[in-house]
Design a protein around this nucleic acid. Structure first.
Lengths: 233, 233
DNA sequence: ACCTGAACACCGTTCAAGT
DNA sequence: ACCTGAACACCGTTCAAGT
C-alpha cells in the first residue's frame, strides 16, 4: 500500500508538514477516520510514530491540517463572475470533495480553528455574495443556508447504505422488512421510487440547490451580474 | 458524577439495554463522543466493562442504539395537520435535539442500520408530505432538501467557536487577525455583523427554513391542508 | 442468566536519548 | 535539527471462569 514502506531506509524523502498531511488524507480516504492513527500514519511514511511529533504538537493539529487540506480542494467562486453560476459551481465542488473525503464531515463538527485554505474559501464566497449586491445581513442568511445544505447533503450521501449504484439491492432488502405494513409510506417510497431503475439519490442535489438559489434570487432583489472591478478604487 | 458509582454494591439496579443506552447518551452529552468508552460507560453504571457485552455484541451496537435514542427525542409531525406548520415544528425539534446531542451528528454519517425510532420518524415525515398531496418524486425532493438543511445547520452550530452568547469575543479575536487586510470581506462580516450586539447565528435557522418551505410550496402546487382521514378505508 | 479477571493487541503521548 | 526506544495510561474485545 505505501510506497514509503516498500522503499529502503536509504532513499527516504524527509518528513514535512505537507507530506504528513497528504499521507494522512490518503490513509483516511482508504480506511476511514478510525484507521488514521499516529502509528498507521508513521508506518505509511516509513518512519517511527514519534517522528511525527517533531512536526505537529499532537494528533489534533494533524486533524486540523487535513480538514484545511480538504477545503483547499474546493473550487473557489470567482467574485466577479455571474453569482448564481459561481455559487452553483462552488457548491457542486464542495459536495464532490466531501464525497471523496466523507470522513471530513465528522471532523468539521469538532474543529474550530480554521486554516488558511478554509479562510480563503470563506473570503471568496463572501466576496461573491457581497459583489452580487447582497446586504451584509442577506449575505449571512445566504451563506448559512447554502452551506447547511451542502454539508447536510454530504452527510446524507455518506450515510447511504452503499454506493449510489448498489443502493437498490439494499433498499430492496429493507423494503422487504416493511412489507408487514408497519411502515406503509416507507415501503411505498422504497418500492415505487428508490428501487426504480433510474433513481439516484445524488440527483436530489441539483433540485435542492435550485430551490435555494431561486429563493435567494427572489429575496435579494435585483442582483448585479458582475461586481465592480476595483473594489474601492 | 454517577449515582451508580456512589451507590453501594447492594442496591444495584440490574443492567438493561435501555439503562445502558440512557447512560451512554449522558456520558456523550457530558464529555463528547471521545469520552464514551466501554470502560467509562461501565464505571458510570457501576459495573465491570465486560458486563456490557452481555447486552450488546460490541460498541458499534451501542452507537447504533444511542443514535436511535436521539432520534426518538425528535417531535414527529402529525400527518393530518397543516403540513407547513408540522414540518416546521419537526425541523425545529430536530435541530434542538442535535444541539443538545451534537456528538450524534458525526455518528449519523457512519451508521447505516436505522433503528425503530428512526424508521418511525421517516415514516411520519413521509406521511405528512404525501398527505399534503406531494407526488412521490416531489416527496423525495422535499425530504432530502429539508433534512440536508437541518443536519447541515446542526453541523454549523456545533462548529461555532463557542456557545451562541460567547461567540462575539472569539469572533473579535479572530477579526483582529484579519486586520492585515488579507481577508477584507471576512473582516467586514465579523466586525460589522457577527460582533454586533443583537447578532445570533441561530437566527439563520428560521430564515433558511422559510426559504425552503416557500420554495416547496411554490413548486408543489396547491397542497391539501389536511389529508384524507382514513388512508384507504 | 448475568457478571467478572486476566490477557491481547491496540491507542496517544512523555521523556530521555541518540545522530 | 531530526528521529528513535522504551514506557505509561489508556482503548475494544476474547476467553475462560465464577455465581
Amino acid at each position: 500500500m505505501s510506497e514509503e514502506a516498500e522503499r529502503g531506509r536509504e532513499g527516504r524523502v524527509p518528513l514535512s508538514r505537507e507530506r504528513v498531511l497528504e499521507h494522512a488524507v490518503a490513509v483516511a480516504d482508504a480506511g476511514g477516520l478510525g484507521s488514521l492513527t499516529m502509528r498507521s500514519l508513521a508506518k505509511e511514511l516509513g518512519v517511527r510514530p514519534m517522528a511525527l511529533y517533531h512536526h505537529f504538537t499532537n494528533k489534533d493539529e494533524i486533524l486540523d491540517g487535513i480538514v484545511d487540506l480538504v477545503f483547499s480542494e474546493v473550487e473557489l467562486p470567482a467574485p466577479d463572475g455571474e453569482w448564481r453560476a459561481e455559487l452553483s459551481r462552488r457548491a457542486a465542488s464542495a459536495r464532490d470533495v466531501l464525497r471523496r473525503h466523507s470522513w471530513a464531515i465528522a471532523l468539521m463538527e469538532s474543529r474550530s480553528t480554521p486554516g488558511p485554505a478554509t479562510l480563503r474559501h470563506h473570503e471568496a464566497v463572501l466576496a461573491t455574495l457581497r459583489g452580487a449586491g447582497l446586504s451584509l445581513e442577506m449575505t449571512g442568511h445566504a451563506y448559512a443556508l447554502l452551506d447547511a445544505f451542502v454539508y447536510g447533503f454530504a452527510i446524507q450521501e455518506a450515510a447511504l447504505p452503499f454506493g449510489p449504484d448498489t443502493a437498490q439491492e439494499v433498499v430492496a432488502s429493507i423494503a422487504a422488512q416493511f412489507s408487514g405494513g408497519e411502515y406503509p409510506y416507507l415501503a411505498e417510497y422504497a418500492t415505487e421510487r428508490a428501487m426504480k431503475p433510474g433513481y439516484d439519490f445524488g440527483d436530489e442535489f441539483e433540485f435542492g440547490l435550485g430551490v435555494i438559489l431561486d429563493g435567494l434570487e427572489r429575496l435579494a432583489g435585483p442582483m448585479r451580474v458582475t461586481s465592480p472591478r476595483g473594489a474601492e478604487a
